[in-house]
Simulated scan of single mutants.
Amino acid sequence: MRFVIVTGLSGAGKTGAIRSLEDLGYFCIDNLPPTLIPKFAEVCYQTDGKISKIALVIDIRGREFFDALFESLKHLEEKEYSYEIIFLEAKDEVLVKRYKESRRKHPLAPDGRILKGIELERRKLNEVKYKATHVIDTSALTVRELKEKVDRIFGDEAQLENKLMVTVLSFGFKYGLPVDSDLLFDVRFLPNPFYIPELKPFSGNDQEVKDYVLSFKETQVFIDKLTDMLVFLMPNYLKEGKRQLIVSIGCTGGRHRSVTIANEMHKILENIGVKVNIEHRDINEDVYKSGNKL
Rank of each mutant, 00 (worst) to 15 (best):
S102H: 04
K53M: 02
I114S: 06
M229H: 12
R61D: 00
I18C: 07
V276G: 08
E285K: 11
G273D: 06
H266I: 06
R257P: 10
L73K: 01
D282Q: 08
F173N: 04
R243M: 10
K293Q: 00
K210V: 15
E218V: 13
D180T: 14
V259F: 13
K200M: 13
D182N: 15
E22K: 15
V6E: 06
K39N: 11
K39Q: 06
G204P: 13
D59Q: 07
G112C: 08
I278M: 11
A68W: 00
E264A: 09
K225T: 11
A12V: 11
I261Q: 03
Q46L: 07
L269P: 09
K275A: 09
G204S: 14
T227Q: 13
L120W: 04
Y83K: 03
I18P: 08
L164S: 07
K91F: 02
L115S: 12
R152Y: 00
L32M: 12
Y81S: 00
L76T: 01
D286V: 04
V209Y: 14
R104H: 03
E101F: 04
V287C: 04
G8A: 11
L226V: 14
I51S: 02
V57K: 01
V43C: 02
K100A: 01
N292A: 06
P178K: 12
I114F: 09
D228C: 09
E77K: 07
T138H: 05
K74W: 00
K267L: 12
D286M: 07
A55D: 01
G11S: 12
V179E: 14
I268H: 08
N162T: 03
A109Y: 11
K293W: 00
K79A: 03
N292G: 02
V57I: 03
V43Q: 02
V94L: 04
A17P: 03
E157T: 07
V276E: 06
T7Y: 10
T133R: 07
K97D: 08
K91H: 08
E285H: 06
E121K: 09
S139H: 07
I85K: 02
L146R: 06
E119H: 14
S52Q: 05
I86E: 01
L120Y: 08
I85N: 00
E198Y: 15
P178F: 10
L184F: 13
K53C: 00
R144L: 00
F40V: 05
T260V: 15
K91T: 01
L88Q: 04
L32T: 02
V43T: 07
D182M: 12
E279I: 07
K200P: 08
L24Y: 08
A109Q: 12
D48E: 11
